[in-house]
Write a protein that binds this DNA or RNA. Structure first.
Lengths: 123, 123
DNA sequence: CCGATATTTCTACATGACGTAAAAGTATCG
DNA sequence: CGATACTTTTACGTCATGTAGAAATATCGG
């Protein structure tokens, strides 16, 4: 899978958080506003990044409307799960890794994890 | 954390699988042998990669012995756990991700996961 | 239908990571 | 001490990414 650069990441975050599709200008404005970055990017820069994200299959674009509108093609969670599986894919003994991973999570999360496992089992 | 290139990855795999520290020559030979690569790398190439891995904190080198000897500074599992946490770190709602992730693992793994969780809880 | 304006595509460049290795420097052994 | 082994330095090509100007294209008001 493709890991994201900083700007790509910011754009994806905005797209993931938006219910509506966004235009390049929307994104440029949002990028300027968010964080303490305050750096006004050129729209072409945003468009370049969007094109790359589209090529990576992470965003879909509506070419029908004139200012093209972009949406994330999968949810943030799905993307993160993909990353998790990528990381795990390189491991031979998944169980050892999972054991160590779970050893490091908080007690609360352990509880909810257990709940999740229960529901999976029921199915 | 630092993700690894292909050669870096191969070198780490060899170091992780070796009980003994390895020299650059050991690694070059092992790389030539392993897989269907069959490409004889220059020792300097291996040394460069080792230096980079050392800078990344992934390998430690014994400078006392004359052919320096290299070891992985952490286990493969720890490294993978690090990757998992990196991936999860970018997620706001860890639980949603974990839920979806667990939904995708095999039934067997779900069972062993449950066992792991139990042992964690006991502690 | 035309020109001004908005939008997109093309092209370009800098930087950094990575694979790759020759050249040069340094230690070691006989 | 000289040959040999090993390490460090330097270097180059490629690819991903941030960044954006130039050029092409569409759209809107008149």
């Amino acid at each position: 899978m493709a890991s994201l650069g900083d700007l790509e990441r910011s754009v994806m975050d905005l797209l993931w958080d938006s219910a509506e599709p966004l235009t390049a200008n929307d994104l440029r404005d949002a990028l300027a506003a968010c964080g303490t970055d305050a750096k006004e990017l050129a729209v072409t820069t945003v468009l370049t990044v969007l094109a790359r994200l589209e090529k990576k299959g992470l965003v879909a674009r509506e070419r029908s409307t004139r200012p093209h509108r972009y949406t994330a093609s999968s949810s943030r969670e799905d993307h993160t799960v993909g990353l998790l599986n990528d990381a795990l894919g390189t491991a031979q003994d998944r169980e050892a890794v999972l054991a160590r991973f779970i050893g490091g999570i908080s007690a609360e999360e352990a509880v909810s994890l257990r709940a999740i496992l229960d529901s999976v089992k029921t199915v």
